[in-house]
Structures are given as structure tokens and as C-alpha cells.
Amino acid sequence: MSCEANPNALQPAITTASPGDTLLVSGTCTGPFTIGKDLTLSGVSGAVLDGKQAGSTVTVGSGAQVHLDHLTLTHGRAASFGGGVNNQGTLTLSRSTVTDNRAPSGPGGGVHNQGTLTVIGSTVRDNYSLGAGGGINNNGRLTVRDSSVFGNSGDNGGGIFNYLAGQTVTVIHSAVHHNTARVRDGGGIGNNLGEVTVSGSAVYGNTAPSGGGIWNGGTLKVTRSKVVGNAATGGPGSGGGIHRAGGTVTLTQSVVRGNTPENCAPLGSVQGCTG
């Protein structure tokens, strides 16, 4: 499925494909794209899905099981949420890059997840949202494995934001770094009332008014990980590394250090975190 001769060829191919098909994609394909059936898009030789600032670059419909592999998803501009990806189904994003997407009126600059999303061996970088989740806004079930989330900007949850009770984020062997929450909480990761697990990962170089690395109001488990070199700009007590606004924080074989103005706040609220 080549877009080199016809940049607009991919959406018709998606529409006419049978459920379960695999489309091999090459060239730069002009979107935005909507996928409402079980489908795999596999990129060849640097394939690009370009949203052309006309909506979410890719929208995955409820009930669809979709696999996007070896693709760059870029230039999405959502009217409400999910600049790069608006996932309402079950989506696996592997060996791909989500970059330079915007949600100027809502959450999820790179990705807005309302279903089940697995990000493997991929990069989510340099996306922007007016609301939460500059990189990824999660309203469902999210797993990030062997991936990087960096350079994203949102009002809160610059890298990743997890919203309500029952919604889960699992970050495994990944890096969440150099993201910015411009207005409120969680430069790297913001967890409102849900559950976040960080395992074998690094959260570093992120910035927010509160919770430079991680801001937690739900359940946070950090295992064999590092939260280092993050900054909160709200002054003493704003939690450069981890700010525990509520809920529970459990550190296991992890390091929280070199964050400003302190590693964890309120002081003494996170067992095993000092300074």
C-alpha cells in the first residue's frame, strides 16, 4: 500500500480492507485516518501518517483491535482531544513515533486513550495539549514498555496523565523525561485517582509547579526505578521528585534523589524518600 504516488490512498484502503487484514504502508500518507475494524498497519522504509492539522491523525473506534507498527504519526491537531491518536478500542503501538501533534482545546496532545493501549519500543515526543497529558492522556488501561516519553507539554501531566479510579498506567523499562506541566501538577507523570506502576524505569528532567517528576493523588508504586533531577517550581513543599497529594506511594528498591526543591513532599509522606 504505497502513498508515494497518491498520498490520499490509505484511508480508502482502510475502508475496503477486510477485518484482520495487514496493510503494508510506504511513503507519506495524508490523513486524518479512522479505523473501525480489526486491522494492522505496518510501515515500510520510514512510512509516515500525516494528520495535516485536520483532526486526530489516527482514530481507533470502539471494539476495534488495531496494531500500528513501524510508523511515524505526526501533524495531528484535534478539535477536542487526542492530537496524534484518539483510541477508543484496543490499540498496540509498536516501533513507532508519535511526534509534533497538538490538542489545543483539550487533553492528550500525543495520545488520548479511552480503551486499552499498549506502547512497545516506541517514542512519544514533542506533543502539546491545552489540558492534561501532553504526551499521553489515559482514561482507560495503558502499558508503556521499552519506550520513551519526552519533550511533551501539557497543562498537567506533561508526559503522562492518569485520570480516574479504575484507570491504570504501567510503565516498564521505559524513560519519562524532559516533559513539562505548565500550569499544575506532574511534569513527568500525573496520577489523579487511578493506579500507576513504574517498574525498572527512569523519570528525570521533568518540570511542573508541583510534582516535578510525579504527582500522585491515587495509588503509586515505584519499583527498581529512578526519579532523579526533576524540578518543581512552586517553592518549598512542591515536591521536585514526587508530590504526594493523597493516596498511597510505595517505593521498592528505587532511588529518588537530586530533585529540587526537595525529593518528596510533604516531607516524611513517602516512606524511604528523604531530603
Score class of each variant (00 low, 15 high):
3 C>G: 11
5 A>M: 08
7 P>C: 12
7 P>Q: 10
7 P>Y: 09
8 N>E: 13
10 L>K: 07
10 L>T: 07
10 L>S: 09
12 P>F: 05
12 P>T: 14
13 A>Q: 15
13 A>V: 11
15 T>I: 15
18 S>H: 01
18 S>D: 07
26 S>D: 15
27 G>D: 11
29 C>Q: 09
29 C>T: 13
30 T>V: 11
32 P>F: 01
34 T>G: 12
38 D>Y: 05
40 T>G: 02
43 G>D: 05
43 G>V: 07
43 G>C: 08
44 V>F: 07
48 V>Y: 08
49 L>M: 10
50 D>K: 01
52 K>E: 12
54 A>P: 04
54 A>M: 08
55 G>R: 06
55 G>T: 02
55 G>V: 06
56 S>C: 05
57 T>Q: 04
64 A>K: 04
64 A>D: 07
67 H>W: 00
67 H>Y: 00
68 L>Y: 00
70 H>D: 15
70 H>I: 04
71 L>F: 07
72 T>W: 03
72 T>R: 14
72 T>G: 08
73 L>C: 11
74 T>K: 07
74 T>I: 10
77 R>M: 06
79 A>P: 08
79 A>F: 08
79 A>V: 15
81 F>T: 08
81 F>H: 02
86 N>L: 14
93 L>Q: 04
96 S>A: 11
100 D>L: 11
106 G>V: 02
114 Q>V: 09
114 Q>G: 13
116 T>V: 10
116 T>W: 00
118 T>E: 09
118 T>N: 12
120 I>N: 14
120 I>S: 10
123 T>P: 01
126 D>R: 05
127 N>F: 05
127 N>V: 06
134 G>W: 01
139 N>V: 12
145 R>L: 12
146 D>A: 13
147 S>T: 10
148 S>I: 14
148 S>M: 10
149 V>G: 04
150 F>D: 05
151 G>Q: 03
152 N>H: 00
157 G>H: 02
158 G>H: 01
159 G>N: 06
162 N>Y: 07
168 T>Y: 00
168 T>W: 00
176 V>Q: 06
187 G>M: 02
189 I>C: 03
192 N>Y: 13
193 L>Q: 15
196 V>Y: 02
196 V>R: 01
198 V>L: 13
202 A>Y: 06
210 S>H: 07
213 G>I: 02
215 W>C: 03
215 W>S: 12
217 G>P: 07
222 V>S: 13
226 K>T: 11
228 V>K: 09
229 G>Q: 09
231 A>H: 03
231 A>N: 13
232 A>K: 05
232 A>Q: 08
235 G>H: 10
243 H>V: 12
246 G>H: 00
251 L>W: 01
252 T>N: 11
254 S>W: 08
256 V>F: 03
256 V>R: 06
258 G>D: 13
264 C>Y: 09
264 C>T: 12
267 L>T: 15
270 V>C: 10
272 G>C: 10
273 C>R: 02
274 T>P: 02
274 T>Y: 03
274 T>I: 07
